[in-house]
Nucleic acid binder design. Structure first.
Length: 654
RNA sequence: GCCGUUGUAGCUCAGGGGUAGAGCAUCGCAUUCGUAAUGCGAGGGUCGAAGGUUCAAAUCCUUUCAACGGCACCA
């Protein structure tokens, strides 16, 4: 065996080094400046410490601070530095885990006293000291039992548990920075100095140990870290900007809707908000009618016997609003119910069981399939208080729902048809960055594994055949079948599931739906649950944030305001408004006794996309001065031309 | 549901044991104005709710409700 190893560099050149040479050795052999700038090394594609000896032939890439992976390492190291700082300042705090995340890092601590944002300054100060100290991150491999004992002796029970649960095959790696050390799989930057000072602690939050709500609640500190101050400030600025796009803030400012305590989690839609709703509803109706859907309406309150049969009573009850099927007691000061209720109904949390009931009316033939049964279905879900989040997570929600009853042979065609519909719709709304997941069987599931195998394979096949990239989300499926999840991000980067498409082999069986096949025998239909918007509520929330409230003309609740400069133009302004309304536009009139500056400012804030401004001159000449949002231009046009042009611009895309 | 933070006028916020404040918004009057705030005046609050401490509570304490940030759960 030779003592030399061949290292292939990214430019294709091959150099020979003694076995055990490190990334740093290689960098030094290339240039002094590279060695100085190097922060990590990629060995055969695996990110590693610069100081790790390389034992065999390998492809090696030296990474500098400007590399994308560097940012992740800076954040991970910042988490370690924070953990040391916290343990120094708050003795007795146990460390648990602290990964890098998108835009930053966090560390979960176990401590009886919670941390407060007021502690941040002290922690950051201590972190800067540790960075300034510049200790090397030293990698050590420990014996498993020694490591467990070490951490237990230190009172670090969470760490000991982590080590105990690591697979036998895994090396127990410890990274040391000066006196402080932590269990970690690495890799790390050469020294704490490399973390830099472009970091900031952002918030404290509770988080369950190992993500399990039955386990202890830890305190998590979130921070962000960047290569330099400039990047950090840009990010903090971006956060501020994102706050301004928040649909809850814009919803109030634009007078779209409100919430109040008495109907927690349910929306009071104001005229303008509901105008947007109706535009969405009209649009999606046109789309699904073209695709051969029929529309139905089903009951809100349904006896629990149906929910028992469908499986919701067993698997979904904690999310349902249950209503005793009893006449309430009306005695003053008496109990609400004289006796403990024994019969129950429930507000529907989903539309599917009701749609199956419609399917089951009469006898269906294979010739009737597929049946695409749609409903703008209003559902109620008893969401945990902490889960509620404006329009994104409400207790009353309305899905643009449909269930497609089809044969197994039709699955491919129907799913494909649906994905084409999804693409058209999201394109029309300007949503181009959609993440697609295939969610597979959860633990709490109905149906046998063979059925699940079949369903999951069918769904993966369709996407593969259509050449659509997707990722798996193991365990995230509905209890009755696997599903596609289509996720969009909100203003502050949170991802929300919108569109969905779920295959279901279970419910038709449970509710005994059948059709007569070509062979004259009974068969089970397959059910495809799908929603394009998902829910109107969430779709609107994302829509508002996506456009920062500045909705495209066809969606704007008020498309144009006619604003007068002087009372002398009031009569003319009324005729302008009439022409706009006649052309089918959503128009309003502002003849208030205010200066035009004031009106322009106010309607701009209300995000009205177009203003027709009329004064004495326009009244005289039969024209309007047109002001588009965010434009300094004020072209003056003949009224008829202006209305026609605007009407064309306001046409829905479909 | 769990951890933390915050609740004062319609909105944004100041005040912090001794008579409840500002700006914007609202209403009235004046002004008739050319593209992001015209002037003057008036009205508006059980200080989230309940209980407690105190001569006195918006302020201190307890409980509770809600909102916000996470976690868990999910469209």
């Amino acid at each position: 065996m030779s003592n030399n190893i061949n290292i292939t560099l990214p430019d294709g050149s091959v150099r020979s080094y003694g076995a055990g040479a490190t990334g740093l050795d290689i960098a030094e052999s290339i240039s002094k400046s590279l060695a100085k700038a190097a922060i990590a090394v990629r060995i055969d594609g695996v990110l590693s410490d610069l100081s790790l000896p390389i034992t065999g032939d390998a492809k090696v890439e030296i990474l500098k601070r400007d590399h994308n992976d560097a940012l992740e390492m800076i954040r991970h190291d910042a988490a370690h530095v924070m953990a040391e700082a916290v343990q120094k300042l708050f003795p007795g705090t146990q460390v648990t885990i602290g990964p890098s995340i998108e835009n930053g890092f966090y560390y979960d601590f176990a401590r009886n006293e919670p941390f407060s944002p007021e502690d941040f300054e002290a922690i950051e100060k201590e972190m800067r000291k540790i960075v300034e100290r510049g200790d090397a991150f030293v990698r050590e491999v420990w014996d498993r039992n020694k490591a467990i004992k070490f951490f237990k002796d230190k009172g670090e029970y969470y760490k000991a548990e982590l080590i105990h649960d690591l697979p036998e095959t895994e090396e127990i790696k410890i990274y040391r920075q000066g006196e402080w050390l932590d269990l970690c799989r690495g890799p790390h930057l050469p020294t704490t100095k490399h973390v830099g000072t472009a970091f900031k602690l952002l918030k404290v939050a509770g988080a369950y140990w190992r993500g399990d709500s039955n386990k202890a609640m830890l305190t998590r500190i979130y921070g962000t870290a960047w290569r330099d101050e400039k990047e950090l400030n840009a990010y903090l600025h971006q956060l501020e900007e994102a706050e301004k796009r928040d649909h809850r803030k814009l919803g109030a400012e634009m007078d779209l809707y409100h919430f109040q305590h008495e109907a927690q989690g349910s929306v009071f839609w104001h005229p303008k908000g509901y105008a947007i709703w109706r535009i969405l509803e009209d649009y999606i109706r046109r789309r699904i009618q073209e695709d051969g859907y029929v529309e139905v309406k089903t009951p809100q309150l349904i006896d629990n016997k149906l929910w028992e049969a469908s499986g919701h009573w067993g698997k979904y009850r904690e999310n349902m609003f249950v209503v005793p099927d009893v006449v309430p007691n009306t005695e003053e000061g008496g109990k609400v119910f004289k006796e403990e209720p024994t019969r129950f109904m429930a507000l529907k949390p989903m539309n599917c069981p009701a749609h199956v009931q419609i399917f089951k009316q009469g006898i269906k033939s294979y010739r009737d399939l597929p049946i695409r049964m749609a409903e703008m279905g209003c559902c109620h879900r008893n969401e945990a208080h902490g889960a509620l989040h404006g329009l994104m997570r409400a207790r009353q929600l309305t899905q643009d729902d449909a269930h497609i009853f089809c044969t197994e042979d039709q699955i491919h065609g129907e799913v494909k048809k649906f994905i084409e519909l999804f693409r058209k719709v999201y394109d029309d709304f300007g949503f181009h960055d959609v993440k697609i997941l295939l969610a597979t069987r959860p633990e709490n599931k109905a149906g046998d594994d063979a059925t699940w195998d079949k369903a999951e394979k069918a769904m993966a096949d369709v996407l593969n055949e259509l050449g659509i990239a997707f990722e798996y989300a193991p365990g995230d499926g509905a209890f009755y079948g696997p599903k596609y999840e289509f996720h969009l991000r909100d203003a502050i980067g949170r991802s929300w599931q919108m569109c969905t498409c779920q295959l279901d082999f279970v419910l038709p069986e449970r509710l005994d739906a059948s059709y007569v096949g070509e062979d004259g025998k009974k068969h089970r239909p397959v059910m495809i649950h799908r929603a394009v918007f998902g829910t109107f509520e969430r779709f609107m929330g994302v829509l508002i944030e996506h456009y920062a409230g500045k909705l495209p003309l066809w969606l704007a609740p008020v498309q144009v305001v006619v604003a007068t400069i002087t009372g002398k133009a009031d009569d003319y302004a009324a005729t302008v408004l009439a022409s706009l309304k006649k052309a089918g536009l959503r128009a309003e009139l502002d003849t208030r006794n205010e200066k035009i500056n004031y009106k322009v400012r106010e309607h701009s804030h209300a995000k009205v996309p177009v203003m027709f401004i009329v004064g004495a001159r326009e009244a005289e000449e039969g024209t309007v001065a047109i002001r588009r949002m965010d434009s300094q231009d004020q072209p003056v046009e003949k009224l008829e031309n202006a209305v026609e042009t605007l009407a064309n611009l306001c046409k829905p895309p479909y």
